[in-house]
Design a protein around this nucleic acid. Sequence first.
DNA 1: CAAAGCATGTAATCGGTTACATGATTGT
DNA 2: ACAATCATGTAACCGATTACATGCTTTG
Lengths: 181, 181
Amino acid sequence: MDVKTLTLGVLCLGEASGYEIKKRFEDAFQHFFAAGFGSIYPALKKAEEEGLVTCTEVPQEGRPDKKVYRITAAGRAAFAAELAATSPEHKVRSEFLVLIYFAHLLPPARLAEVLEERQRGFEEMRRMVEGCDVECPEAGELTPALRFVAGYATAVFGAAIDYIDAHKGELVDAIKEGSSR
Amino acid sequence: MDVKTLTLGVLCLGEASGYEIKKRFEDAFQHFFAAGFGSIYPALKKAEEEGLVTCTEVPQEGRPDKKVYRITAAGRAAFAAELAATSPEHKVRSEFLVLIYFAHLLPPARLAEVLEERQRGFEEMRRMVEGCDVECPEAGELTPALRFVAGYATAVFGAAIDYIDAHKGELVDAIKEGSSR
DNA sequence: CAAAGCATGTAATCGGTTACATGATTGT
DNA sequence: ACAATCATGTAACCGATTACATGCTTTG
């Protein structure tokens, strides 16, 4: 699945500009599907060429015109078809775990930093996911699907945080001993 | 961090051929850093050109010669420097969570399949990570770092599996109701 | 006064995946 | 017989990141 497809997904939920889609990616998908302007704008352009979305330019003062995109029937169908065909992959690319795997080649002080930095990162992620719950009470109750995703993320980040917290001291001590010997 | 760098890391642990490095990636890094032949072989070639590894061709019968790579002092230094400079990122790209997020656009039967498929995937991963413990008793005790990585993965996969198991019925039921209404 | 937010885009580059190309041996 | 394992590589392609380019408004 590429950025163009998920962009279609966002537009299924309502019209939006490229900038707004980027924000959606940040506060809803960030923890499982990141994307920057450099992939969103070209994706929107291509989707428009293919008739999957339409675009209305809204004049703005002191800014470039806002381009509001709306999904078409063809776009909706394309997104549904893509969803039906994608298998539930789940890939992780973790420099953090590489660093731990080769901890013996890291200065012990740096190792401790690495562990705390990642722990803070996970804590921030968890806060954000839980915040999602609180942020949108106006839209009525969270749908079951959204609750599932948020609950999943909370559980997984929680497990990661707890594990790091419970074992970091032990690891750092062992590496310190190893490097002084 | 790219494949070339992690390849250097593997060679820090002992000499190996491209094929053997690929196996290492599969049974040690798979859950946090995947790589295929198409990135490993060119990485090795480039590392050799840069003097980070040396290569000895070992004649084989009925197969292409085996090319055994060994890391050089420069290679070791380059790897250590790279490690010291990399920040502990941790990125997830999950088609699975996208599928759940848009569960309302999926046939309920497919949703149930998706949940079970991913659960099985995580269970397999967890088994593999735990197996790591059992597979290499000859190399003496697992180092603290290796234990940390295995323990982390076990905890996180466990949390994911438990969460899916506890909430999949609820989700599927809710989506079924939504689509019949 | 500086930083963050609003708003759009392009081009170069980079890294990785996939498919192709070859072929013997061993296990089911 | 067929699949898997051993063993190496290349080339085309694809998608994403990064840097560049511009510039006003709001908030701290």
